[in-house]
């Protein structure tokens, strides 16, 4: 069994009108089956309201399934006694960098998780140091989070999760509120984490250029997994992605357009280099 596994996961919530009467039931997650192995880099893609964030919150036991089961490292998330183990094993980074930093000094924020877990003082300091170094924020350890840029704040949040020594980390649209530089910083930190520390990564996003490095991509729409495959397999279906309110990198789109106009270019071009090489071979 993988580090994260879901089986026929369903999550429904009841919509109520102003008087509290039931208006209807919304199925935010609809029979999702996932199986993530230790060390993988998984991307979950989808437009706003596709259910991807709701799915993510199940992995951290913040939400409990209406139907079906979620296992994290072999533990059922509905097992109340295991909740804290699960949250330590599967750390979570959220969208808004301001709303998840608790400490008033960077190092104190990173220490917050280990403090909650009851880690001895000396070890907390070791973990804080190593985590801040892993995301390249060690020199800012004495700073106030309010003075940092968005990308830096998110890296602090990531360090805060790493300090809990999780086996996997779930990032729920960590770059949605950042500018291009901040986005790059965060993705670089996440990739390093996956490559060097071999932490399993589940990245939730709607930016296509961020998923190029993923081992596997799930595309969600209306609560269920609509597409599944490697980035290349996903990107080769430009029309389908567009119908799911997503777009593709300009280079992929250009390659697709050229192919439609009769040039013999392979599907799923991901980088500029791939495109120039494909065109060169046609010359």
């Amino acid at each position: 069994m993988g580090i994260i596994q879901t089986k026929k996961l369903v999550f429904e919530y009841i919509r109520r009108d102003e008087e509290g009467n039931v208006e209807g039931i919304t199925r935010a997650v609809d029979e999702v089956d996932l199986d993530v192995s230790q060390g993988q880099f998984i991307a979950i893609l989808g437009h706003n309201g596709s259910g991807k964030s709701t799915l993510a919150k199940h992995i951290n036991a913040i939400l409990a399934p209406t139907e079906g089961t979620v296992w994290v490292d072999g533990m059922d998330t509905q097992d109340e006694e295991k909740v804290w183990d699960i949250r330590q094993r599967a750390g979570m980074v959220f969208q808004n960098p301001d709303n998840q930093i608790i400490g008033q000094v960077v190092e104190e924020d990173v220490g917050f998780g280990p403090e909650n877990m009851g880690v001895p003082t000396k070890e907390i300091w070791e973990r804080v140091e190593e985590s801040l170094k892993a995301v390249g924020m060690y020199e800012f350890r004495k700073h106030s989070p309010n003075k940092l840029s968005g990308g830096q704040k998110q890296r602090v949040s990531i360090a805060g999760v790493i300090a809990m020594h999780p086996k996997c980390i779930i990032l729920d649209e960590p770059t949605a509120m950042l500018d291009p530089n901040g986005r790059k910083e965060v993705i670089r930190a996440v990739r390093a984490l996956n490559d060097v520390e071999e932490v399993t990564v589940v990245l939730i996003t709607h930016y296509m250029e961020e998923i190029i490095y993923a081992d596997k991509v799930f595309v969600m729409d209306r609560g269920h997994v609509e597409m599944e495959g490697t980035p290349r397999e996903i990107f080769s279906q430009v029309e389908k992605l567009k119908s799911l309110r997503l777009d593709v990198p300009q280079v992929t789109l250009l390659a697709h357009e050229l192919k439609r106009n009769g040039l013999n270019i392979p599907d799923g071009i991901l980088t500029i280099k791939e495109l120039t090489e494909a065109l060169e071979s046609l010359k």
Binding site: P180, P249, Q250, L254, K273, T276, L279
Partner: peptide, 18 residues
């Protein structure tokens, strides 16, 4: 200065170089 032109610009320059 940390800004990027559209990816298309890079593609065109790369092709030109080739």
């Amino acid at each position: 200065v940390g800004l990027a032109a559209p990816q298309v610009t890079y593609i065109m320059h790369a092709l030109r170089e080739k």
